[in-house]
């Protein structure tokens, strides 16, 4: 959806066809995305990163006249609290650790207030403590948003998943709860001993 051209098929979202639509149009429909590597603004502060992501008008004129209102500050503080970076609000992102950068980006997605959140390996490169914290952030997030996570760290998947879809070579292999998937004979057959398991958890 914007990053790579669609080879075949169509993508629909809430009745809108979004195949090959430009990224900003897709985002405005309420789809928040985060890719594997932290994609944040290193030269800006954490606060500014979240401010940019806030849901609202994205026009040129609006950006010139927009004021930093009480409501916006509260919203940013609320987001920062969720990702545990409130005390780092005015720190440049470049000085944060890798894990913290990932959280900043998750914070940006939360600030967008999308109806659906797509996260691609949000814990890539994190320590186990950081991974656990990220799991808690995602669990809280899933109370307000539909969250789709692509992940192959099984412990992490167990922590966050309500519904799991196992993919194998681009095809759906199995679907269900953690226990169901783990006991699925096809999953065991295909993935046992293999390095990488792609799991989509919702």
């Amino acid at each position: 959806m914007g990053k790579s051209p669609v080879a075949s098929g169509h993508v629909y979202y809430q009745g809108h066809e979004i195949t090959n639509r430009s990224p900003h149009e897709v985002a405005r429909l309420g789809i928040g995305r985060k890719f594997q590597n932290p994609n944040v603004y290193n030269e800006l502060t954490v606060f500014e990163n979240i401010l940019l992501a806030l849901k609202g008008t994205h026009g040129i004129f609006a950006s010139i006249t927009s004021k930093l209102t009480r409501a916006k500050k509260d919203k940013i503080a609320w987001v920062l609290e969720r990702i545990g970076l409130l005390d780092k609000a005015f720190v440049k992102v470049s000085s944060l650790s890798h894990g913290q950068k990932q959280w900043v980006e998750i914070g940006m997605v939360i600030a967008q207030d999308p109806s659906i959140v797509l996260l691609d390996e949000p814990t890539a490169g994190m320590t186990s403590d950081e991974t656990h914290l990220t799991g808690e952030i995602i669990k809280t997030m899933s109370q307000d948003h539909s969250v789709v996570v692509i992940e192959h760290d099984m412990d992490f998947v167990k922590q966050i998943a309500q519904r799991i879809i196992v993919l194998h070579q681009g095809e759906k292999l199995a679907e269900g709860s953690v226990a169901e998937v783990q006991n699925n004979s096809k999953v065991v057959e295909v993935y046992l001993g293999r390095e990488k398991i792609d799991i989509a958890a919702a």
Binding site: G2, P23, A27, R33, N39, L44, A53, H58
Partner: peptide, 10 residues
């Protein structure tokens, strides 16, 4: 700094 990221923000 990164024009792709900001387009994903709408």
């Amino acid at each position: 700094e990164n024009e792709r990221r900001i387009s994903y923000l709408g």
